[in-house]
Computed example of a mutant assay.
Amino acid sequence: MEAVFFIFFFLIFGFIVSIFYKIISNGIIEKRKNDKAPILQIPVVVVEKRVKTNTSTSMNDDNYNDSSTWHTYKITFEHLHTGIRHTFTMNESKFDKIIEDDIGYLTYQRKRYHSFQRDEGAAEFENDASSRGDLQFKIEE
C-alpha cells in the first residue's frame, strides 16, 4: 500500500513541477521574443479602455476575512491604415492619460507597450473630412 502512495505522490509532484517549468520557460521565451523584436511606431486610434477588478478573499486563523483587490488596466489601439488591433496591459498612471477616440502614435515592441503620444493636430484632422484621404475610421456602437 505504501508503494502505491509513493508512486501517486511522485506522479502528482512531477506533474506540478512540470507545470511550473512550463510557465517559467514560456515567460522567458516571451521576454526574449519581445527583446529581439524591433520597436515600432504606428498611427492609431484608441478604440477601447477597460479595467478588470480582481478580488481575493481568505479566512485567517482568527475567523476574520482577509481580502485584497487589484485592478488590471487594458487599452486597445487600432492601426489607422490597416485596422489591426493591439491590446496592451499598463499601469494606472499611463492608463489615465489616454482617452478613448484619441488619435496618435503608439510605440511598442511586439507585445510590450512603450508609449502613446497624442497627435495634437488630430482634432483638426477629425473635423476636416476632406483631409482624411484614404484613412478608414471604424465607429463601434
Rank of each mutant, 00 (worst) to 15 (best):
M90Y: 02
Y73L: 01
I99Y: 07
A123V: 09
M90H: 05
E92C: 08
R118H: 09
D101H: 13
E78L: 06
F116M: 11
M90E: 01
T69C: 02
R110I: 08
K74L: 15
Y64L: 03
G83Q: 11
A123K: 09
R85W: 01
T76Y: 02
F116G: 09
H86V: 03
E124Q: 11
T82V: 06
F125P: 00
R118S: 02
G83F: 06
Y73D: 01
M90P: 00
R85S: 10
N91D: 11
S115I: 09
R118V: 06
I103K: 08
I103T: 06
H71G: 00
D119W: 07
F95P: 05
E92A: 10
E78V: 07
I75H: 02
F77V: 12
H81A: 14
R85A: 09
I99S: 15
Q109N: 13
R112Y: 07
T76G: 08
N60Q: 05
S115H: 06
D62T: 02
E124P: 00
T72Y: 10
T76A: 10
T82L: 05
E126S: 02
E120S: 07
L106V: 14
Q109C: 05
H71W: 05
I84S: 13
F77K: 05
A123F: 06
Y105I: 06
L106D: 14
